[in-house]
Amino acid sequence: METVIKVENLTKRFGSFTAVDNISFEVKKGEIFGFLGANGAGKTTAMRMLCGLSLPTEGKGTVAGYDIYTQPELVKKSIGYMSQKFSMYEDLKVWENLELFGGIYGMSDEIIKIKTDELMASLNFEEERDKLVKSLPLGFKQKLAFSVSIFHTPKVVFLDEPTGGVDPITRRRFWEMIYDATARGITVFVTTHYMDEAEYCDRVSIMVDGRIEALDSPKNLKATYKAKNMDEVFQQLARKSKRKAD
């Protein structure tokens, strides 16, 4: 199996505060890799380093074969990113957002058009196509943001708490979209607070105070920690935290 993300001893410090403390892991192609941790555990910081938004203080990392320290712009070409905060252009229409981001990643006008048609059909978005994004309900927006993040078929997509604040049905549908993406060979790196979602991942890492405390498949983790579900695993590990959650 091809390795898509490889991280060795990655550390990020802000002054005297170590947000991410010496983490190492690998993610294989086509995997759904869950990145769990309490608020303030360092998940988003770690993810931002992998996306080339933030430079690591120490350590090495490659994403899609590019060095995150020396080739951040090449990393950016091969990844998709969906931030915690909704960040499509609200004053653009649905199709205009797709066109903009498709264009930014170098897709041609014809391909953008074909893929937009496909996507609108598969999402049942035909009516919303010409609507301004700001008029859409949150669930639609999240689906759109995810669709935009994988519109250019990246090697890896980074999802930062993608299902925050949406209803269970939309979450369910959202995870179906994630499975569809992996079926197309896209590797998924996802942070979440929902432990039922952790169960959907192929492998899960749990961060506590900037360190990775556990990393395995949900099944093995439950066995190791003698827990009924992922929630219990998480509770046991997160209790060790000395850092104050914000």
Partner: peptide, 11 residues
């Protein structure tokens, strides 16, 4: 708005 980050994470 956060759209800047979406641009910064693009090439």
């Amino acid at each position: 708005l956060g759209t800047m980050e979406q641009i910064n994470v693009s090439p």
